[in-house]
Design a protein around this nucleic acid. Structure first.
Lengths: 192, 192
DNA sequence: ACCATTTGGGGACATTTGTCCTTTCCGATT
DNA sequence: AATCGGAAAGGACAAATGTCCCCAAATGGT
């Protein structure tokens, strides 16, 4: 709970009383490794704060290959945003790659927060702005960084992912094949 | 004005009265071909609705090459979002590539709308959500489409851009060199 | 109308990445 | 300890793209 409070505080000011009023709208959820938070084709009805653990966000491309778009780790929000915002079937799978604990809120309850607590209008907009900036950053990385640079960034920012995820997930996250990932790892090992 | 009203209507309901109250907060601006809406290093103080014309959004990569991230055409909002949201210096240039007319609002005035008109809280959040979805779509295109597919999409969705922008802008938008763009055009011309 | 300059097209070769396949490594099981 | 199976590494060749050019066509200024 405290982690979530700090997370919100960092985005937009919230009083202890407001936070206490807010908390009953959320439910705690445990996912075991392999469990899905949402699957393709289903409407994503919740948005969640990751208290602990790691999720992999992926989709199937035109060749039915799994493409990993994101690894979602502790202290971040997660949902299939398009599905959640529009309340339409999700393009994405979101799967726990280790045991994970979430604080989740239903779509309807979030709308209720917006209408009941004026400050939540501001918090909600700030949350979406934050997610916008994350997505912009992601697009910028896609545009500007080589697969090797992305690998090094992953190693630095989310080192656990390299230990938990198999090569094909990491390779598709970097936008290359397993063969190229193997070459990248060799380069890094030999210090090039 | 009517176009802007329809644009807002499509995002979130707004009454005639609310729209009439809102309009004084916006100013009409004309950009000539080559004029900048915002330049790198400057804080972007406005967000604008493009009534007419086309803007190119670009930045300088590590090798000081101009990389075009977006062509912004009629009936869309434009701003250097990161700079506008955080009120910090922009990474991006936004330049008119033909004579362009905008409806712009200052950062402070937008905050005033949020606090004065409760419905603008909802409109504002809906606008950011829309921009989030656009950015997500953009990232998905970056991830999934080949340069050729992106070219065909550009031809279909923003055909004017192919007429107005020089090859290097289009090539950097597609994420390839001019040489590859030339090969793509040849392929398309020969019907492959 | 003419010339200078810019812009787009494309040849030749190098480099990178993908594809397909084999080999090596590591952990689990008996 | 031996071996079996799955995952990662990597060899060989093909395909795609980049780099460095040059040439022709288009554009703008006088």
């Amino acid at each position: 709970m405290e982690k979530f409070k700090h997370f919100l505080q960092a985005i937009s000011p919230i009083t202890d009383q407001e936070f206490a009023d807010t908390i009953p709208f959320f439910t705690q959820q445990q996912l075991k490794k392999g469990d899905f938070f949402v699957a393709q084709g289903r409407i994503c009805r919740q948005v969640a704060f990751v208290e602990k653990g790691t999720l992999r966000v992926y989709y199937l491309n035109a060749k039915a290959e799994e493409i990993t778009s994101c690894f979602c780790t502790e202290d971040n929000m997660t949902t299939s945003y398009k599905s959640f915002i529009l309340q339409e079937p999700s393009d994405l799978f979101i799967q726990a790659i280790e045991d994970t604990s979430l604080l989740a809120i239903e779509y309807g309850n979030l709308q209720k927060l917006y209408t009941t607590y004026p400050n939540w209008q501001t918090i909600g907009r700030a949350l979406v702005e934050k997610e916008y900036l994350n997505m912009e950053k992601y697009a910028s990385v896609l545009n500007n960084e080589t697969a090797k640079e992305k690998y090094l960034r992953l190693q630095k920012e989310q080192p656990n992912v390299l230990l938990k995820a198999p090569v094909e997930h990491i390779a598709s996250y970097l936008g290359v094949t397993r063969r190229t990932l193997s070459r990248i790892r060799k380069e890094i090992a030999s210090g090039i």
